[in-house]
Design a protein around this nucleic acid. Structure first.
Lengths: 357, 357
DNA sequence: GTGTAAAAAGAAAGCGCTTAACAAAATAGA
DNA sequence: TCTATTTTGTTAAGCGCTTTCTTTTTACAC
């Protein structure tokens, strides 16, 4: 490891003072063009990179954003992170990534503690802003010490949370209407004539699940009624859909006409279970879901789902975060993106249209 | 934003000197238990977090690792990152995440420049170690300025690269045998009696593609021969498999008996194309691939693929990186993980067994 | 030439911390 | 009791930079 070259070295090489070199680095005006060019040349020749730690100490800016994410393997978050990375990079920020879920499910206390630790870490590092995706915030009830830690963090550093607003939290929230999206897909399935509809997937105690499930139930109750045997929660992954559908298929109960899967990945498992039983979607059982994950059009059948326009979430959240960092007045426009039904094959709408032609 | 509390404030509150407080923070022995406890109490009461920038300046350690990744949306990398995050966090490091691909494909110059910029950024931030996943390193030929920048980075900070060794690069490489995995799946397909086999997916000019394609061709040439019309490269995503398979299905050429997809996601698109043409895998066309992505067992048909044990890559890479950071002698054991065939449904091996019973 | 204002350059303080060097106090041995 | 040693605490330097305050240089008018 070579010894790092410092601003002092550059000053010496250029035969000038440290402060003049600093002025050149920071594009301060009061340096003559001649000297400026000379110094720039020397900086380039020696491949000098100013030490950001030192700059950060005095300027109180680290050009760093912390991203706290509960599950980096979830493509919903990955999508978000990659958007966030690009926008941040273009704005001159680098991301500190903090994942708070180890592997699989964790017990609640443990994950709460992990997030609180993350906040401490963030505080130590003096980042300029914090973005929180999912995690504890998704829970229906948040521990008091978590809320305290989060508010303390937000006292020191601007925090923007992508998720549903929670009471008592002072951070800024950017949210999507999770109720509405489940309502849309349930209405669609009902409109196609299905009356006995199952709900599969989602983790109990997590807000997105309760909201979507509530939407499902309320909507169902208008035209039909919910058979509680047909509501099977678990988590958000294909295995969950597979197990859920299988238990329905293997039970004594009458089979449903249709299934609302909590998201496309769960639907994937549902399809697999159906196929294993020689059944077919949409002909035997229609399946609809939410979230429009990438590549849903390659599933067999192509999945009918609800696009929440999550692709704009990262952009909006950063927009706010940058405003907070710069102490600007918040301008909460351009936030509304309504969920939108994407009709593909798995609910059978197109097939029905063809028949009616 | 509250004013941050500093070590000075703690010293004043504790009626002692800054250095004594520092000793307590750093668990230095020469402080009496009484004073130590008193100071610890005050630190806790005031929720004091030492400023890591300041600590980093003097100690030359930032407890930060940079992770440079070309495409954070690729689940192969996401898997890797999430492992890396957990291990790093447990070792007291936080990750700086730098994604170098914006969206979709980029032209080569642009992405080279993005990575070089990333290296500069890393240098400025004085991280303790760097991990590189994919990116330029994957290309068959690397630009000179890229190699120079990479070597300069490695001169200052330990760099570990997960990928195939490139000439002239001084960083440490951790690799998997990409040739072997394609060889395995091709052999499997040949052993099942297929002779006319297509190769779909992968990006020309990227090393993993050339290596797997070379393995495919060499293996094929032993028992059969390669019809160049049946080799269709593009990229690594379902669309690529879909388009590739479709073009085969729509062409005048005789259809292949089997397909080697470069990875499971490409195979996914292949299945979709087959299905659109009323064809079925493995009955009409067998499909095998590499990489054993998560949830492959939920595909229809369940995919037969080759597990590269990439799950151990992150662990091994960090193991080395930590050794380099601590200036330890490198101990390159436990590195061998042979690729392994996972037989599921899509090549038809099990069906054949049943028939023979 | 002198005088003055503006521009350019430099000196020095300080960001929050660690740590070497030193000083003081406590303990031990003679 | 007195010195030698160990333990505990303090002072101050310095990490690499920014920035305020000062000084020097330059430009221009008279």
């Amino acid at each position: 490891m070579k010894n790092k070259i410092t601003i002092k070295d550059i000053a010496k090489l250029a035969g000038t003072s440290v402060s003049t070199v600093s002025r050149v680095i920071n594009d301060s005006p009061s340096v003559s063009d001649k000297k400026r060019n000379h110094i720039k040349q020397i900086i380039a020749d020696n491949n000098f990179q100013p030490n950001m730690l030192a700059r950060g100490m005095v300027s109180n800016k680290t050009q760093t954003l912390a991203v706290v994410v509960s599950d980096i393997n979830n493509p919903y978050f990955t999508d978000l992170i990659s958007q966030i990375e690009v926008i941040s990079r273009n704005a001159g920020y680098t991301l500190l990534l903090i994942n708070t879920m180890t592997a699989g499910k964790m017990n609640k206390d443990n994950s709460t503690q992990l997030e609180i630790n993350a906040f401490k870490n963030i505080l130590e590092r003096h980042v300029d802003g914090v973005l929180i995706l999912g995690g504890e915030i998704d829970r229906e009830s948040v521990a008091d010490n978590y809320l305290t830690a989060l508010n303390e963090l937000n006292d020191q550093i601007p925090v923007v949370i992508i998720g549903q607003k929670i009471d008592g939290c002072n951070a800024l929230f950017v949210e999507r209407d999770q109720f509405r999206s489940a309502e849309i897909i349930t209405q669609h399935l009902l409109a196609l004539g299905n009356r006995r509809i199952a709900f599969i997937g989602g983790e109990p105690g997590i807000r997105i699940t309760s909201q979507r499930l509530a939407a499902f139930k309320e909507t169902m109750n208008i035209y039909s009624k919910v058979d509680e045997h047909l509501v099977i929660l678990n988590d958000y992954y294909p295995q969950s859909g597979y197990d859920g559908m299988n238990s329905l298929l293997n039970s004594e109960e009458k089979l449903p006409d249709a299934v609302v899967a909590i998201n496309d990945r769960v639907a994937w498992g549902v399809f697999r279970a159906l196929h294993d039983h020689g059944l077919n979607s949409p002909d035997d059982i229609a399946v609809g879901s939410c979230d429009a994950f990438p590549n849903g059009e390659f599933m067999t059948p192509r999945i009918t789902t609800v696009n929440q326009h999550n692709e704009s979430l990262g952009k909006i959240a950063l927009h706010f975060l940058f405003q907070l960092i710069d102490n600007k007045e918040l301008n909460r426009t351009e936030e509304t993106h309504l969920p939108e039904l994407i009709i593909r094959e798995s609910c059978g709408a197109k097939k029905r249209d063809e028949k009616n032609d």
